Computed example of a mutant assay.
Amino acid sequence: MELVWATEDLVIAGQPYPRFPILLWDSMESCIPANWFFRHYLLRGKIGSKRSWPSTGRALYDFFSFIQAHELDWRDVDRGEAKSLVAGYRDYCLVACKLAPNTTRQRLHYICKFYEFALKKGWVKRLPFAYEERTVRRETGFLAHVDASGGKAMANDVMPSSHKVLPKFLSMAEVKALLAATDNPHHRMMMRLALHTGLRREELATFPLAYVIDPNKAMRTERNLRIRLAPYDGSGMVTKGSKPREILVSRQFMAELYRYVTKVRGERASLSKTSQQAMLLNQFGEPYGEDGKSLNRIISEAGKRAGIKVHTHMLRHTYATHTLVSLQRNPASGIEPLVFVQRQLGHSSIQTTMVYLHLVNEMADEAVLAYDDELNALAGVA
């Protein structure tokens, strides 16, 4: 059995889906149930981002490889007292492969979704797992007063215990070291854009040139300027799930962006035969492809020069954490800190944003000044 990707675009309702995962047995016959599940789960809107497709395909591939290697039948859900196939695969991941619990949970999530689909199709008589009520730790922060769960939640009994891993972020000293270690002005602006806005990797790579304006020509009554990230405005902007949102950019940083666009970007723009919509261009004058994966390499290498382990998404965490602290220290601003950060980051649920509250609690004893003002102060140093 092998996991391959469609060599031709799969077209549904006029929409092409290239790079679609397909499971094939060694005999080259399709693994029909898994492939039907792919079409249901991936193409019918169950997963909004195509970036999640590879992890779904690999999870099913690895599970079926485990089944095949042990000469088992995935439809064998009535095993009596014996360990279920999914539980056996879970222990294989944790013990034999020594995978992290959260990685194992992600794989099991897709496998359990496959079995739920199989049950609806009548391929199995019951699920090889059950749901049980578990006591969960209730949040004491924002919106805790509307939680009517009583500290209880339904959980899949085959899942390993969830281990909350707080996102890592850079201190201001590390931010300063990272920027100081970056001589390339294009790479430095890439990092500053991430640090000032919290944009995701693909959003940085596609951030349009058209969004950069001369702040002196904008309304001078506001410190911050609003930018609407709109995937369908013809600018080439890409957001997660193609969801539009508005972000605030300080007038001072917009001035830095405008200076970069008018004084520095032309060096790379001249290398391309065509005009490019993206503000950030690679060494060939072209936009960063593959959702900006090469941004990770650039930022990681800069981190190594500064003696810091860093990746693109860590800059997003850095923005969120320091901005949240700054807003909490300035309650007179009239802004609800958590809601503001949620909107800036484009989180669908505020529960996702609440993870930064834990980080803030951990660093509550540290003296943290206004984040954006400190970054702007670094502009002349970096």
Rank of each mutant, 00 (worst) to 15 (best):
W36N: 03
L357H: 01
S49Q: 12
R251K: 12
L248V: 05
V249F: 08
A82H: 14
A153S: 13
K168G: 12
Y356F: 04
H317A: 12
V381F: 01
K263I: 05
I47S: 06
S349F: 15
T56I: 15
A205S: 06
K98T: 13
V264S: 03
A148D: 04
F129N: 05
K98R: 14
R259A: 15
L23P: 08
A82P: 06
G57R: 04
P208G: 01
F37W: 14
N216H: 14
L85Q: 05
G303Q: 01
R226Q: 04
A218F: 03
V212T: 10
L119C: 03
H145I: 11
K243W: 07
R316L: 09
L375V: 15
L170F: 02
L375D: 07
L315K: 08
A82C: 10
R138A: 09
V212W: 00
Q252T: 14
V4N: 05
P287N: 00
A130I: 02
R226I: 13
D157V: 05
C97A: 08
H347I: 07
N102V: 01
L271P: 07
L281N: 01
Q344S: 04
Y260G: 02
N376S: 09
F114T: 03
G380K: 12
V95P: 00
E374V: 11
I67D: 01
R39S: 04
Y356A: 11
G307R: 06
E71K: 14
V261L: 13
R126A: 08
Q252L: 14
A379G: 14
K98D: 04
P244L: 14
A13S: 15
P128H: 06
S294E: 09
G289N: 08
A100S: 15
G234T: 08
P331K: 07
D365W: 00
R223N: 13
T239N: 01
E267C: 03
A370M: 15
L378F: 14
F284N: 12
F20K: 02
L170M: 05
L204W: 01
V310M: 06
H317F: 08
S162M: 10
L280Y: 08
R90I: 00
I298E: 04
L99T: 03
P208Y: 10
V325D: 05
D373Y: 12
L166T: 00
